[in-house]
Design a binder for these strands. Structure first.
Lengths: 200, 200
DNA sequence: TTTTATGTGATACGATCGTATCATAAAAGA
DNA sequence: TCTTTTATGATACGATCGTATCACATAAAA
């Protein structure tokens, strides 16, 4: 048969164009034509690889979620302490560099839309909520068993607090209402509040 | 002269129509025609009271901010303790009923757009940041002076934590990832963490 | 080399958008 | 009563949108 092109690569190129537009101009500027122009291809090609605009939006998000998952997983150092693992995880939620800023922005833009769009909600909520709460709670339980925590803590609620704190600061950092250093300092303040000592 | 109509009332009616659309279908569905239809007036009328779509968006937000400010101010009971004042303030940030849910949704939708729209940013950031951090910090300082707090707290950081916590949970509650009761319980858990005893 | 499935371009259609224009209804001041 | 200013309706224009259609180039399979 014919030309033999890597479809997955082409789809990724187009999805990346969408990400750039969504992050820099907002989801409402994401049209078939704009995405095509940003990707440097014809509009027909975007139609070819993603039949409809709705599918384009959903599948570009799915690709971004996969992209983010790999990025965060790659961050966790091998022999990290429980405390450092939690810290890396929390800081991973903050828009501290250009790429994570883009991720936060995309996630937020889709999130707002998903509130009244059940189809999108499935793709937004599922990967973001997969059990971060449970994961952090388990990490805290491990630290508690090792005697690294202050006494009298309710681990599930501490986990919820830490995660909601990061999410809340994400928005502030994104809007320029809080500096990145400030956000990191506040994460560390709360880790100090939970863990017994700074040392590993 | 002629018909003599209350312009401010008309503008509010149209703005309210915009709020309903923005909260139920998203800001990208806010068009001059849709707002006019929702308000039950002609498109021309929307043009008459808000010259352009951009002005409509900005001024409807300003009206909503004013609306929210009154609502929150009306909530604080007269002889409330410092702890209750902070609690009311924090819970006021959460989408616990239909009206505050609408406010959160509107604020978030505008916020996302404001990230890449400096004109909007001025109207989104200014009223939301006016010094909530400072206000909560001062309330905490008052409580500390009255001997109501645990020792070793950094008040500014505790204030930042409490506010970011509420903001972070707002998103979760909005998306149905966390129940309202759960969010309230987490606020109270953190208040217990900071204040010495439950009693006033 | 011929065929044929795959990939790409050009273009067209109907809908909706923001905005502008023109006309008119209504009521306060003369 | 007549004029004049305010408020509202009807409608039109150009742009952009999502999507569909038609044509054609290309390279593997025959």
């Amino acid at each position: 048969m014919p030309k033999r092109v890597d479809h997955n690569l082409r789809r990724l190129q187009i999805a990346e164009a969408l990400w750039r537009i969504a992050a820099s101009r907002g989801l409402e500027e994401v049209s078939m034509r704009q995405v095509a122009a940003e990707a440097g291809v014809s509009t027909r090609l975007v139609q070819y690889y993603f039949e409809t605009r709705e599918r384009l939006l959903v599948e570009a998000l799915a690709l971004r979620n996969e992209h983010d998952r790999k990025r965060i997983e790659g961050r966790l150092p091998e022999g990290a302490s429980l405390r450092d693992a939690i810290r890396v995880l929390l800081l991973g939620l903050l828009p501290l560099d250009e790429e994570s800023r883009q991720s936060t922005l995309i996630q937020l833009a889709y999130g707002v839309r998903a509130v009244n769009d059940p189809l999108l909600a499935e793709h937004v909520i599922r990967p973001s909520k997969p059990g971060l709460d449970e994961l952090v709670t388990e990490l805290l339980a491990g630290a508690q068993a090792a005697g690294q925590l202050h006494e009298g803590l309710e681990l599930m609620r501490e986990a919820g607090t830490l995660l909601a704190l990061s999410n809340g600061m994400s928005y502030d950092v994104l809007m320029g209402m809080r500096s990145a250093d400030d956000a990191i300092a506040l994460v560390d303040y709360n880790l100090r509040r939970v863990f017994l000592s700074e040392a590993t």
